Simulated assay, not measured.
Amino acid sequence: MPRPRERILSTSLLLFHRQGYNRTGINQIIEDANVSKASFYQHFRSKDDLCIEFLNRRYEYWVSELEKFISGAQNLEEKILKSFDFLIYMNEKEDFRGCSFLNILSEIPAEQVEIHHVLRYHKNKLRDFFMNEIKDEVLSDHIYLLFESSILTSQLYRSNELIEKSKSIIKSILTSSH
């Protein structure tokens, strides 16, 4: 059986992603992880501390899955398009639950500064991914914005239709930028 800290984290990974941050209480995490309240607080000072660890773990998981998914791409266009195919893959795998980061962002007030800092940090890393691949700030930001909006709209409509439209836009943009 995994150690209490790992059980708490794996439980929160599941519950925060599936139910959301505010709808998941510490007591549910403690019960589902089969740990004592004392054990929970031995590993995490607060629910916010657990949330930060959740965001870091979720990002590591998501990026490793993305990297595996796009690893066979032969060129820049294929890599970018495959990153959008990855969104389709994740929607099918996770039933259009959307981005854990944006979901949590919508649930917490601005006063929870540490969580907001972690959210921005990881979103900036995603933005940097596109910049490192594309090497053109305006173009990479355009594609990053399409990527983020594709996540949101696919969750909203429970459809991959606008991801496919974003891919068409990207093909057009990349063709005209050459």
Rank of each mutant, 00 (worst) to 15 (best):
N27Q: 14
D48H: 04
K93R: 14
S106G: 15
F16D: 00
P109S: 14
K165D: 09
D128K: 15
S149T: 12
E148S: 08
E6M: 08
L102G: 13
D32C: 07
L126S: 05
Q19G: 00
E77L: 12
A38L: 05
K82D: 12
I173S: 12
F40G: 01
I173C: 05
S150H: 01
G72Y: 07
I52F: 04
S36P: 07
I115H: 02
N34Q: 13
F130H: 04
L105S: 11
I143P: 01
A33H: 04
E67L: 15
K123L: 15
D49S: 10
S36F: 11
L66S: 04
Y89C: 07
I104D: 03
T175R: 15
L146Y: 05
V35R: 01
I108F: 01
S177F: 10
L87F: 04
D136I: 07
L162Y: 14
L66C: 03
R7C: 07
N160V: 09
A38F: 05
H17F: 15
E107N: 11
Q42I: 03
H178L: 12
N103L: 10
H142P: 00
E6V: 15
S149P: 01
L50R: 05
I134P: 00
H43P: 00
D49E: 13
D32T: 08
E94T: 10
I143K: 04
S100L: 03
F101H: 09
F147T: 02
L81K: 09
F130D: 02
N160R: 05
N160G: 05
Y61R: 09
E107R: 10
S159I: 11
I104S: 06
L145M: 12
Q19W: 09
I151W: 07
L102Y: 10
I26Y: 05
L102M: 14
K135S: 12
D49T: 04
K171W: 00
R18L: 12
H178M: 07
L15P: 05
N124I: 01
E133S: 11
K68Q: 14
Q42L: 12
L87H: 02
N103F: 04
Y41V: 05
E111C: 07
V63S: 03
L139M: 15
Y61E: 15
K165E: 10
T24G: 02
S154P: 03
H117G: 06
R5W: 03
N160E: 10
F16R: 07
H43E: 02
I29S: 00
D95Q: 13
S149K: 12
D49W: 02
L66A: 04
G20E: 06
L81M: 12
K167N: 08
T153R: 11
L139K: 09
K68V: 12
S46W: 04
E78T: 09
Q19C: 07
L76K: 10
E137N: 11
E137Q: 13
S71D: 11
P109W: 06
Q74H: 13
E92R: 13
S172Q: 09
S172M: 09
L81C: 06
P2G: 09
Y59F: 15
A73K: 05
S159A: 06
S64C: 06
L13G: 00
E53I: 12
S10D: 10
Y157N: 14
I134N: 01
S172G: 09
T24A: 04
H142L: 14
